[in-house]
Amino acid sequence: MKKIILGLTGASGGVYFLRLAQLLSMQEVELHIIASSNGEKVLQYETGVSLKEQVKLWGGNGAEIVLEDNHNLFSATASGSSGFEAMAIVPCSMSALAMLAHGITETLLTRAADVMLKERRTLVLVPRETPLSTVHLKNMTELSQMGATILPAMPGFYGRPRTMEELVDFIAGKTLDSLGIENTYYKRWEGKYEE
């Protein structure tokens, strides 16, 4: 069973987190969710959803789900020997991005991501900020050079999306791709031009 960590920080874009977590909860995976306190607050503010209540609902979907305490550095997710294969932080705040780029690991979320980097495992960061400052861009470059995948929440329009859900699914599907999970949640480019 694949072991995946899903992080949530205080950037805007909780809808991306909710959809990705829902889709992962329907996979045969062991899913550990780590949220910063601001991540939980922004999620509640933007969507009206309580993370703790939502995790209970996802629990019946098939995945083994663990909601981690962001202050518990004794969690298995804090160690490279626990065998977690991949991690995504969705959305990834510029603050979390900066901490990761400079090795600051004071919380479980940043420590787990740091483990992914040091073990050369899959780390997908979905930043949601605009415009981007030079500092933001430098931090993204640093992390990309360390092996992280930088997957900005910038949905494509070649699939001619008609709803917000389709735009969200584009990012969720691309994130699943980067985590190595096959999916059909977004329309892929077919190399044809239709007038």
Rank of each mutant, 00 (worst) to 15 (best):
13 G>I: 03
13 G>C: 09
13 G>E: 11
13 G>M: 03
13 G>H: 10
13 G>S: 06
13 G>T: 09
14 G>C: 10
14 G>N: 08
15 V>S: 14
15 V>H: 09
16 Y>H: 14
16 Y>M: 09
16 Y>N: 11
16 Y>D: 12
17 F>H: 10
17 F>Y: 09
17 F>G: 10
18 L>V: 05
18 L>N: 12
18 L>Q: 13
18 L>M: 14
19 R>M: 06
19 R>F: 06
19 R>N: 15
20 L>A: 11
20 L>V: 02
20 L>M: 06
20 L>F: 11
20 L>Q: 10
21 A>S: 05
21 A>C: 12
21 A>T: 04
21 A>W: 08
22 Q>V: 02
22 Q>E: 13
22 Q>I: 01
22 Q>L: 11
22 Q>M: 07
23 L>Y: 07
23 L>A: 08
23 L>S: 15
23 L>W: 08
23 L>P: 14
24 L>I: 02
24 L>E: 14
24 L>H: 11
24 L>W: 09
24 L>R: 14
24 L>Y: 10
24 L>S: 12
25 S>M: 09
25 S>F: 10
25 S>Y: 05
25 S>A: 15
25 S>W: 12
26 M>N: 12
26 M>F: 07
26 M>H: 15
26 M>P: 06
27 Q>F: 04
27 Q>L: 01
27 Q>N: 07
28 E>H: 12
28 E>C: 04
28 E>V: 04
28 E>R: 15
28 E>D: 15
28 E>Q: 12
28 E>K: 15
29 V>C: 13
29 V>H: 11
29 V>Q: 06
29 V>W: 05
29 V>T: 07
30 E>H: 04
30 E>N: 05
30 E>D: 06
31 L>T: 08
31 L>W: 14
32 H>Y: 10
32 H>G: 05
32 H>S: 07
32 H>Q: 05
32 H>E: 08
32 H>T: 07
32 H>A: 05
32 H>R: 13
33 I>T: 13
33 I>V: 14
34 I>V: 13
34 I>F: 11
35 A>Q: 03
35 A>M: 00
35 A>N: 05
35 A>L: 01
36 S>M: 05
36 S>Y: 08
37 S>C: 05
37 S>N: 09
37 S>H: 10
38 N>G: 04
38 N>M: 04
39 G>L: 04
39 G>C: 06
39 G>T: 01
39 G>V: 03
40 E>C: 04
40 E>V: 00
40 E>W: 01
40 E>P: 04
40 E>I: 00
40 E>H: 09
41 K>Y: 07
41 K>A: 14
41 K>M: 06
41 K>T: 11
41 K>E: 06
41 K>D: 08
42 V>D: 03
42 V>M: 01
42 V>W: 03
43 L>Q: 01
43 L>T: 00
43 L>Y: 02
43 L>H: 00
43 L>C: 01
43 L>M: 02
44 Q>P: 01
45 Y>R: 00
45 Y>V: 00
45 Y>A: 01
45 Y>P: 01
45 Y>E: 00
46 E>M: 02
46 E>Y: 02
46 E>H: 01
